[in-house]
Computed example of a mutant assay.
Amino acid sequence: MPLASILKRTYLKFSKQTDGPFVGFYLYAMKYIVITDVDFLKTVLIRDFDKFHDRGVYHNEKDDPLTNSLATIEGQKWKNLRQKLTPTFTSVKMKSMFSTVLNVGDEMIRVVDEKLSSSSQTLEVTDLVSRFTSDVIGICVFGLECNSLRDPKAEFVQMG
Rank of each mutant, 00 (worst) to 15 (best):
L144E: 11
Y58K: 10
A4N: 07
E124I: 15
P87C: 03
S120V: 14
G143D: 11
P152Q: 08
P65K: 09
K8V: 00
V38T: 14
S15Y: 03
Q158Y: 01
F25G: 02
S15E: 01
Q17K: 05
F40M: 15
P21N: 04
V111H: 12
F89S: 10
E155T: 06
V136R: 07
D48Y: 05
P87L: 06
M1N: 10
M97C: 05
G20I: 14
C146F: 02
T126D: 03
P2A: 10
Y11I: 14
T122L: 15
T90F: 00
S15K: 06
F40Y: 15
K13G: 03
V157Q: 01
I33N: 09
D151G: 05
V92F: 12
G75P: 07
L81E: 15
F49W: 06
N103M: 15
F98Q: 07
M159D: 08
S130K: 03
Q83V: 12
K16P: 01
D151P: 04
M97D: 00
R131H: 12
F156K: 03
D127E: 14
E107M: 12
F22E: 06
D64V: 15
T10E: 04
Q83R: 14
D39K: 13
Y28V: 12
F132E: 09
F40G: 06
T90M: 10
L41K: 05
P152S: 09
F25Y: 13
D54Q: 08
K115R: 13
T90E: 04
S69L: 02
Y58G: 08
R47V: 05
P2S: 09
H53S: 14
G105C: 01
N147P: 01
L149D: 07
M108W: 07
S134P: 02
A71G: 07
L128R: 01
N147R: 14
F98L: 10
L116G: 04
I46K: 14
T122H: 13
F89W: 11
T10R: 05
D48T: 04
R150N: 15
G56K: 11
S120R: 12
E74D: 10
S120Y: 06
F142T: 09
G56Q: 12
D151Q: 12
K95H: 14
I6N: 04
L81A: 15
M1G: 14
S99G: 06
G20E: 13
I137W: 02
V101K: 03
M97F: 06
L70D: 07
N68W: 00
V112K: 00
T36K: 02
L149K: 09
S119I: 08
